[in-house]
């Protein structure tokens, strides 16, 4: 589904991504974990062109993204982004639209779906994330957890083949984390392909099939989630997971 070849990105002196190669299969849920600044979010954002990279390439469902950013990849990005959804740490709901308005915006204006049909589908999706009663609410009237669930519904409205989630629970109040993880767990159970950058180790262990550990712009460890998280081989992974302190 997604192939990453020798992906490299430097920012001045600093190497953000140091030549990453990885493949993400259809139907899999993959967790990207590791310490802050390890390159997880940057890698994720390279996959739908929100970040440019300096060398290597990304192939998403047959579309190839090359170094050079939006200018070079305009046509490919346009297709990639319609097939790849994204959920942000800060939700980024459209502040001037209601919950339902956020969900139907792209189907209507990007895909050209009829308003009635998009609305019906939008309501279904809001029901799926448990927010039918909030469809008329504006973002500033909702809690973080509610906003993030609307953001997930918004991404799903485009029927993405892959959902990229960039720390979807990091900015939430602790008591709101559960409601979002429940929704994501249900999506995983339905077989949606997801790449999720997260610090929720228990969630990664329970829900994701594979876990990649990024550190210093390199994948330092990868494998089935249970084995990576329960019994990491790399000392930095152990340190990150706090296993050595026991």
């Amino acid at each position: 589904m997604i192939e990453v070849h020798e992906l490299r990105k430097v920012y001045g002196e600093r190497t953000i991504l140091g030549g990453i190669t990885a493949t993400f299969e259809k139907g899999q849920v993959v967790a990207l974990v590791g310490p802050s600044g390890g390159g997880k979010s940057t890698l994720l954002r390279c996959l739908n062109g929100l970040e440019s990279f300096d060398s290597g390439r990304v192939v998403v469902g047959g579309e190839t993204l090359l170094p050079g950013g939006a200018k070079v990849n305009r046509a490919a990005l346009h297709r990639v982004r319609q097939r790849v959804g994204m959920v942000f740490q800060q939700w980024n709901l459209f502040a001037h639209r209601t919950a339902l308005g956020n969900v139907i915006e792209a189907p209507v204006h990007v895909k050209g779906a009829p308003l009635a049909q998009a609305t019906e589908r939008g309501r279904e999706l809001l029901a799926r994330v448990g927010l039918s009663h909030r469809e008329g609410a504006y973002p500033h009237e909702m809690s973080g957890g509610e906003q993030q669930r609307v953001a997930i519904a918004r991404a799903l409205a485009m029927d993405p083949e892959v959902l990229l989630l960039d720390e979807p629970t990091s900015a939430l109040d602790p008591e709101r984390v559960g409601e979002v993880l429940d929704v994501l767990g249900a999506l995983a159970a339905d077989g949606l392909t997801m790449l999720i950058v997260t610090h929720e180790m228990r969630f990664a262990r329970e829900v994701s099939h594979r876990t990649l550990v990024l550190h210093g712009g390199q994948i330092i460890e990868e494998g089935p989630s249970r084995s990576v998280i329960d019994d990491p081989k790399h000392e930095r992974t152990r340190a990150f997971l706090g296993l050595d302190r026991k």
Binding site: G49, F88, E105, M158
Partner: peptide, 23 residues
């Protein structure tokens, strides 16, 4: 307008002009 608004619009497949106009 926060950068995230534009990023969210682009990530939904909007072109730059559409993202500007709608969001």
């Amino acid at each position: 307008v926060p950068r995230g608004q534009m990023e969210a619009a682009l990530s939904l497949g909007m072109s730059l002009p559409l993202a500007l106009r709608r969001v």
